[in-house]
Design a protein around this nucleic acid. Structure first.
Lengths: 217, 217
DNA sequence: CAGTGTGAATTCATTCACAGCG
DNA sequence: CGCTGTGAATGAATTCACACTG
């Protein structure tokens, strides 16, 4: 498989977040000094199906050695490249409330090729604050900032009512990817990838499975 | 359909988070004073497929009127009941770092039947702090707290290294649902529902779709 | 021979299309 | 008539099972 550049639209959508999880486990294995791993061992760590893991890899190439398994370091390199995390992405965070500043400090982002270059907020109360070395800027400077500093990805942690407004601004400024934590569906735009993350939905999913039955009426 | 209590294991897993999103849109419609809505109108608001929405509802009952549509208020009641959010769930948050306290303050949780009854942290630096009326308790008091105050759902916002440890403690204390924000897969336990939420995975998914191709080697 | 890579089989999810009802 | 509710058709994702290789 994979005799040349891969067409990403051929990769099942469900595969993509799994690749990220494989990568995390592999990093852990690497830090434990484990040199190689089989799909079966990976599957146990992830409680997943070994065939699923192999198939997921197969969309991108042949990364293993038959009868042996996968070399951890090599597999990390390959998956990182496939996921695009070996490139350096410029990221900004819109909204420096609790969630925004939690994300700004989150180490996982910085470690995986995401370079936080700005945090913006419209409230005077937080503008000027320093979050782990990044100063919170006033939102009215956003458009100008984007002119001078091309940004790839915007993380939206603004209130739902202004999410679409802010999204429009960053898209106008050339941002090509958005992770939206605001509880508001954003209008889709050609050439811009939008990922919706819904914290309260997660709680409701848990409550669904906890409430034992659902008697009608 | 649905002549009696519904068997939740019959409901497609993909349906559950969608119900939560339907509910949010319906609440918005309600606050706009809209009395009824068709599956087509809902679909437009959500950019989803109208048949999908009707089918999702059909797992739980017949909520609409043929030729007319759905009464907004009635539908909210029904879906809330199906999702279990009309029950009152006792929730604790483990880990009062930035993310934990962001979630503690998040209004959406409180509004939808989730009652935050405690926040715990192991660090002296945050124990005793007040987060919107809830005091951060020392984690060593967790087991005792759970004995006196039954808790349904635990939100884990602790570092990945201690996530399993903390999860074991809350499960021992009778918690039946966990939303885990720590980047660590938790061992599954019978009778305990665990939902993994992965913030850095979301960023990687975006980076995947942004990086235009993935040339091998 | 152990473990990958992958067609084929299966399961799960979405969408279509229309009968049936208010 | 218009819109729901739902079997049937399609499509996507997962799992099986085994040929193949180092």
């Amino acid at each position: 498989m994979a005799p040349g550049p891969i067409d990403k639209s051929q990769v099942p959508q469900a595969t993509v977040p799994r690749l990220a999880r494989y990568l995390r486990v592999l990093h852990r294995l690497e830090s434990e000094g484990v040199p190689k791993v089989s799909s079966k061992e990976l599957a146990e760590r992830l409680d997943a199906n070994a065939a699923q893991i192999r198939k997921d890899f197969s969309y991108f190439g042949e990364f293993g050695v038959r009868g042996v398994g996968y070399e951890v370091e090599y597999l990390i390199d390959q998956l990182s490249r496939c996921l695009g995390v070996s490139e350096k992405w410029k990221v900004i965070i819109l909204g420096a409330g609790k969630l925004g500043s939690a994300l700004a400090r989150y180490r996982g982002f910085q470690e995986e090729g995401f370079d936080l270059v700005g945090v913006f907020d419209s409230s005077q109360r937080v503008v000027g604050l320093d979050i782990d070395g990044v100063t919170v800027r006033p939102e009215r400077e956003l458009a100008e900032f984007l002119k001078d500093n091309p940004v790839d990805i915007a993380i939206l942690t603004v209130p739902g009512e202004v999410a679409q407004l802010v999204a429009d601004k960053v898209i106008a400024g050339g941002v090509k990817g958005i992770v939206n934590f605001a509880p508001a569906r954003l209008a889709s735009v050609d050439g811009v990838f939008i990922r919706q993350v819904d914290l309260s939905t997660e709680l409701m999913v848990v409550s669904f499975y906890l409430s034992k039955e659902c008697s009608p009426r």
